[in-house]
């Protein structure tokens, strides 16, 4: 008679166990992410009189802020493009190379991640100053006839941020390429595809989901990056993150800072969803073909 009871207890436990295991994480997530974000949204849409869209109207009506949003998205696109161009071949080679150095090389690419973005950005500052290595190098090679200032330019921010985020792109893509069976490329070649065609039709096609995921990761991190733009870019390369900092910490305009943060968040979400939908749509079209 006791047996069914213990069994029932076990079944009940089995039912609740996943919820219990999930609870601590859900709790932390709710208290430290969802609640602050909701508060932020609330702050951005209220003033002394109650609900208002005034802060958003201020953003919409001021071309200065549109410019900052545009510059931020441009920065994200440029950094994503650079990390893709540099990251795809590197990750592919690291995933395919048979050498016993492969693991070490991968570790080497992740080393920069162990150093804070602030330190790495300082490194770029040393190179970028009018008197820095880059300027001297370009002059010595004859590409420039007078000192080049890369500090406090968008170009400098893009280069530095691409370097900061490249390891993340490589790590993401490495995992993706590693999971694609090399025999698929061989199969394509044995069926008459030139190696480059096999790479495109099979490997890159199968990696496209991962490439999109890596791009989204780099893009979101790039447009919300703060340390690199503020150190390398300064006031002349104002982006959303630095503008939010300025409003919240220097001008103490919390509601407007919250509105800017919300706009940035919504932009990232919208782009991610659009990207995802694009990918899904393509998948379905191919299945139906």
């Amino acid at each position: 008679m006791t047996k069914p009871e213990t069994k029932g207890g076990g079944a009940r436990w089995a039912l609740f166990a996943p919820a219990l295991l999930f609870a601590p994480c859900a709790f932390v997530y709710a208290v430290f992410f969802i609640w602050p974000q909701a508060s932020l949204l609330a702050i951005s849409a209220t003033d002394a009189a109650g609900l208002t869209l005034a802060h958003y109207q201020r953003f919409a009506g001021d071309s200065y802020y549109w410019e900052i949003l545009g510059r931020t998205l441009g920065l994200g696109a440029a950094v994503t493009a650079i990390t893709l161009v540099l990251g795809v071949p590197t990750a592919y080679l690291l995933a395919r190379v048979q050498s016993r150095w492969a693991g070490f090389l991968l570790l080497l690419t992740t080393f920069p991640l162990l150093v804070s973005a602030v330190v790495r950005s300082f490194g770029w500052m040393v190179l970028f100053f009018r008197d820095g290595l880059l300027s001297h190098g370009l002059m010595a090679l004859g590409f420039a006839d007078k000192p080049v200032q890369t500090m406090y330019t968008m170009a400098g921010v893009i280069i530095a941020l691409a370097q900061v985020l490249l390891p993340l792109m490589i790590l993401t893509l490495h995992g993706v390429f590693k999971s694609i069976d090399r025999d698929l490329e061989y199969a394509a070649m044995s069926l008459g595809a030139r190696p480059i065609v096999a790479l495109g039709l099979v490997t890159l096609r199968l990696a496209s989901g991962g490439i999109v995921a890596g791009s989204l990761l780099v893009f979101s991190l790039a447009i919300s990056a703060f340390a690199t733009p503020s150190l390398v870019g300064g006031a002349r390369a104002n982006v959303m993150a630095t503008a939010i900092y300025e409003q919240a910490i220097e001008l103490l305009d919390w509601p407007f800072a919250a509105a800017l943060a919300t706009i940035l968040l919504v932009t990232v979400l919208a782009l991610s969803l659009a990207y995802g939908a694009l990918l899904e749509g393509r998948g379905e079209r191919e299945a139906a073909r």
Partner: peptide, 13 residues
């Protein structure tokens, strides 16, 4: 090169 060899290949996987 492999793609010019005109071989039919069936893989283990």
């Amino acid at each position: 090169p492999a793609h010019k060899r005109d071989t039919g290949l069936v893989f283990q996987s």
